[in-house]
Every structure is written in structure tokens, then in C-alpha cells.
Design a protein around this nucleic acid. Structure first.
Lengths: 261, 261
DNA sequence: CGCAAGTTTGACGCTGCTCAATCACTGTGG
DNA sequence: CCACAGTGATTGAGCAGCGTCAAACTTGCG
């Protein structure tokens, strides 16, 4: 992918995402676009990094989906996050001596591997980008807490439906939901099961209920949410935890905060 | 609590904790001890901060236990972290406009409320403290992921036992486990239930098994782990996620890393 | 066409939940 | 010193939500 192609790209998902938190100036947008110059295609099923590896780079998803997961000795797997276009895996990932989880690809994907040094340079040069990225990290943490709440306290239907709501909201934030509330959804029922701590059989039965109730349409790698409000209601979904309105207005964030976010 | 008293205190749990990550110089130790000058007693059952509140300070636990939790409309509660002496709630907590969870006290506790400005000054002045604190934050995130794994994938016995192992390891790190492997454990079975996503009845039955098998002794606010290795084995507990050996050796951490951790 | 991956269905049963009662311990006031 | 209340632990009986196992079906693809 060369610079000419980049320039043509209507928008970069990272710019879409961070643009909601801070208004990015031209040079900042250029810097983000520039990150994509080393984008590479990876195929579905491969790991970007695996448990036990020593991390030295940060990954940025430009196209496709990745997910964070952990295996248990008995072969079971817990999925702990989905990364969609515009998402970075933890920007401090290279501080671990050893990964305690893996990051795999759910679909074919375009990913940028950003060496630690380059990432640090970017953060140093563009404090507003740094601020936005670190804010995004805080939101990721919130999301993890919400997942724990779902898995720990809710019944089967209420485990699946908030996930649909969340992913819809997040995909919207990067302009990847079309006018009919449909978006790419590469999870198989196996992934839904490993995310919610259920079996695929039971996931299947729950999806049938949601479909029968006319709330969603799912299949062929796409999800359509037919009645978001009704789904959100049975899901007990409240998007506060996504802090979608972004961090405090910039003025409130004295610049010294940024490096501590 | 005045400075004279502070000086007498044999050790401060925060110093114990951070001292495992970086070797603290005298002035750094003093700065940490100095934080405790405004310590206040709080009584069990009160919240340090509640969902919806606008945070403006960071809390440091000196004595007693706190916990992070979230309520659901139906009254159920998910506990998402325990904070023991030496733990700080998220040092970036004041960046949220609104808390999306609460922090409550499990026991009477001595807590320092550190205003954002003071916290930021400390981090600015002592980069090594900053580095250690931000490292601790990374570990907290790892822990949350491990909890999700436990709650999502494991059976009842395997949900409770790793929690015992984890808390033992963490209490040891701040010198709060005595020679007979006994430590303060103020959780009731209700809290164990709300942590693991089980009912108190079933928690009770599992504890009986662990007791009958001679693995633990629990009650009266104390927990004794009689055979750590055996318990860890049935728990599937692997302390890697606690990254107890701390961050990469300091040399490896170029100083510029610190402000981005 | 044939295989692989993913989805769906059915029968059955276990793990962990519900409801409700009882017990144990501690602190309090008379 | 005892009655009493409150909190937490324990027990039992019954049951349901979700898991297990296994087979069939559907879809996409080389």
C-alpha cells in the first residue's frame, strides 16, 4: 500500500475513531494516515501475537476483526475483547515481558505492526493523539468490566444481546454500519459461545429466539439489528461504559494530564 | 496521623508493593510515606465513590479492603476487583466524567484521598514511582482478564479457588501473610458469590469441599491456605498474570517509556 | 461433486439455582 | 448474666437452565 493509494482512501478508521475524542488537525491526520504505510494483509485464523511471546510492537487494525483470548489447559477458550477497524491493541503492550494472552484474527485483516519506537515517537510528537489513544485505552478497560458483569450476572439471552448492541455502537463509531443497521459480523456461534461462557448449542437456541422475536437478523457474516431500542432493553444495555461522548472537553484536560492517562 | 507517627510506622504497604518493581531511593520512599499524612478512617460498608459520581481524586488503601463493583437493575452485583493495602484505585480515575462503577469498603479501612493535582505532581517529580504505579495498572488489567476467564470458563470449585490463590499471593507481596499462611480475609460468602457469579448457597457448598479436602481453613475474617500447591493445581492457578516479577529490568525500560505506560 | 466449516435439532441429565428454614456467633441493652 | 436482634453460615428438597452427546443439515468453495 503506497502513499498514493493512502491519499485516495476516503477515510482511515483510526481517524474516524480518534476524531470523536479530539478534533484532529491536518498534520495529525497525516501522521495517522502515515502509520498505515506498512499495512499488511493477514489471513483469518492466524495469531498476531500469542501467549508467551515477547511483544515489541503495537498492532493497529485497519480492516477486519481481531480478538483477544486466552486458553485453558482443557482446551476451552475465553475471548476477552474484539478489535475492529480503528482499534489498537494495548498501546503499552510491549511493556510485558511475556504476553499473558493471545491476539488472533477472526477474519482476513489488514493490520499495521507498529514498532515500539515508532509508536513512542508518534505519542511524543502529537500529544493530542496520545491523549485520544490513552483515552481509548480507558474505554477498553471499562468494556472489559462490563463483559465481566455480563458473564457473571446475566442469563443466556442477556449475555448475547448486549454484545450485539456494543459491537453495533462501536462499528457505527467508525462508519461501518450501513443505513439498514447492518454491519460485518464475522463471529461464528463458537466465538459467541467463547465470549459469553456458554456452549454453541445454547448460543444457537438463543439466537433463534432473538430472530423469532424479530430483533436481529444474523448470518453470512453480517448482523442486522432490527430494533435497537428493544434489543437494548432486553439486553439491559446502557452505553455509558463505552464513554462514547469521549473524554472531558479538552479545556478541562490540562495538558499535563495527557501523559498520565 | 502526623509525621512523627508516620516515621515510626515500620513499613508502608505502598512502599512494599512498589519496592518489588523498582528499588526506591530514600526521597522516593519519603514521598510515598508523605502521601499518607492525610489518611482517614472509613467504616465498612461505605462507598469511597459511587457509580455516577464525578471523580476528582485517587484513593490509596493503607489498611483494610476495598472492592470495585457494579450493580444491575435487578439488584445483582458483580465485584470486579479487590483492593488491598498498598493498592491504588486506577490512577487515571479522575479522567472519567462519570464513574461507571463504584468502589466500596469491605472492612473498616484507612484510606488516603489524593487530589488529582497532588497525584500528578508526585508522578512528575518521581518518574520511577510513576513507572511503578503505571506498571501496577497493567497488572490490574491482566487480573481483570483472568477473572473473566475464571467466571466464563470454569466450574464452581475452579472459580473460588484461584481467587484464594490470587489474594494470598497479593497479600504476601505486601507482607500481610503470616508464617502459617494465614491472612485477613474480610469477604463474606456473599462477596465470594458476587465475585464468581455464583449463589451464596453454592459458594458455601464449595467451601465445604475445600475444607473437607484439607486445602483451606476459612472463617472469622481469616483465610489459611494449608496446601498452596495442591490448591493451585485444582484451581488451575498460574501466577503469570500477576506479573509478580515486575516489569522488565529497569535498564530495558528506556526512560521515555515511563510516561507512556 | 465432495469436503469442510458452521448451524441446527433432539434427547437427556447434571450443575448450580431457588426457596425456605435453621443454626452459630457477636454485640447490645436491660 | 441473659434475652434478643442482626448478620452470616449451613442444610435440605426440588427443579430449571444450560451443558453433553450425537446426528443431520446447510452453505460455501475448490
Amino acid at each position: 500500500m503506497n502513499d498514493a493509494v493512502e491519499a485516495l482512501r476516503p477515510s482511515n478508521p483510526l481517524i474516524n475513531k480518534l476524531g470523536r475524542f479530539v478534533s484532529l488537525k491536518d498534520d495529525e491526520q497525516d501522521a495517522l494516515r502515515h502509520l498505515g504505510r506498512n499495512a499488511r494483509s493477514h489471513s483469518r485464523g492466524s495469531d498476531l501475537i500469542a501467549e508467551g511471546d515477547e511483544p515489541d510492537s503495537v498492532f493497529l487494525i485497519l480492516e477486519g476483526w481481531a480478538f483477544r483470548y486466552k486458553h485453558l489447559e482443557d482446551g476451552s477458550r475465553q475471548i476477552m475483547a474484539y478489535l475492529i477497524p480503528g482499534d489498537l491493541c494495548d498501546i503499552r503492550i510491549f511493556l510485558y515481558e511475556q504476553m499473558d494472552h493471545s491476539i488472533g484474527l477472526l477474519s482476513d485483516a489488514t493490520v499495521v505492526k507498529i514498532p515500539a519506537a515508532e509508536m513512542l515517537d508518534l505519542l511524543d510528537r502529537y500529544p493530542r493523539i496520545e491523549r485520544a489513544l490513552l483515552w481509548a485505552t480507558l474505554v477498553d478497560e471499562s468494556t472489559l468490566r462490563e463483559w465481566l458483569l455480563n458473564v457473571g450476572q446475566r442469563n443466556a439471552l442477556q449475555k448475547i444481546s448486549p454484545l450485539c448492541c456494543e459491537l453495533c455502537v462501536r462499528m457505527k463509531a467508525v462508519n461501518l454500519v450501513d443505513s439498514s443497521e447492518t454491519f460485518a459480523f464475522p463471529l461464528t456461534q463458537t466465538e459467541l459461545a467463547d465470549t459469553t461462557g456458554m456452549t454453541t448449542v445454547h448460543v444457537n437456541r438463543c439466537l433463534q429466539i432473538l430472530r423469532k422475536d424479530g430483533l436481529i437478523r444474523i448470518g453470512r457474516g453480517k448482523l442486522t439489528i432490527l430494533y435497537f431500542d428493544r434489543l437494548a432493553k432486553i439486553a439491559g444495555f446502557n452505553k455509558i461504559y463505552l464513554h462514547v461522548d469521549g473524554p472531558p472537553v479538552e479545556q478541562k484536560l490540562r495538558s499535563r494530564f495527557s501523559k498520565h492517562m
